[in-house]
Amino acid sequence: MNIFRFAGDMTHLISILVLLLKVYATKSCSGISLKTQELYGIVFLARYLDLFTDFISVYNTVMKLVFIGSSLAIVWCMRFHRVVKRSYDRDVDTFRHYFLVGGCFLLALFVHEKFSFREVFWAFSIYLEAVAILPQLILLQRSGNVDNLTGQYVLFLGAYRGFYILNWIYRYFTEDQFSRWISCVSGLVQTALYADFFYYYFISWKNNAKLKLPA
């Protein structure tokens, strides 16, 4: 464990806490894409198949349970909670995310570290996580103004993989047989997708203005 990875995990955790805060405090999920949340649920379920077989550390197991639990809880809330689901606007959350699932799974069948059940599902979860934010970013562009908590949620979610990139650079120079090119390439794509959001977030922060994404 290195400081970059720990910072990344904490930033990821903060993004989830901000999202839970928004949904539970405001009893509203306006501005949140249910499709992105469903994709994250698939990402964590596909990636943590070894949850009960490989014990790495208490930290590792606890964080996996938190990530799986929170993503499924948010999806449940947005679909079934009688108050929250009323604020879900399916007319703006129209990204056909099943194409992302199919495409990433196909890619994982061809590009993986080893052709085994777990490795293919692991690669699938890495590719899917890289594009999982797309429905959310499209929704924000469509809905124009972004409320503070949603903006902070996306900001932290984008920043966490940026810390992981620093972690991979660090591990590349400090560990001899470290090769995580699947994670690295996907992580770069994932972080790049947030580039314009980071730009508009910084501009709104500098001008102390409301975050607005150009449609």
């Binding site: 990875r5 995990d9 990821h12 990636r47 070894d50 490989d54 790495i56 590792n60 964080m63 996996k64 990530f67 570290e113 080893k114 085994s116 777990r118 490795e119 692991w122 992981y164 972690n167 047989q177 090769s179 995580r180 994670s183």
Partner: peptide, 10 residues
């Protein structure tokens, strides 16, 4: 390293 290497990252 065996490609089924234990994924120690989240």
């Amino acid at each position: 390293v065996d490609a089924d290497s234990v994924k120690d990252e989240l």
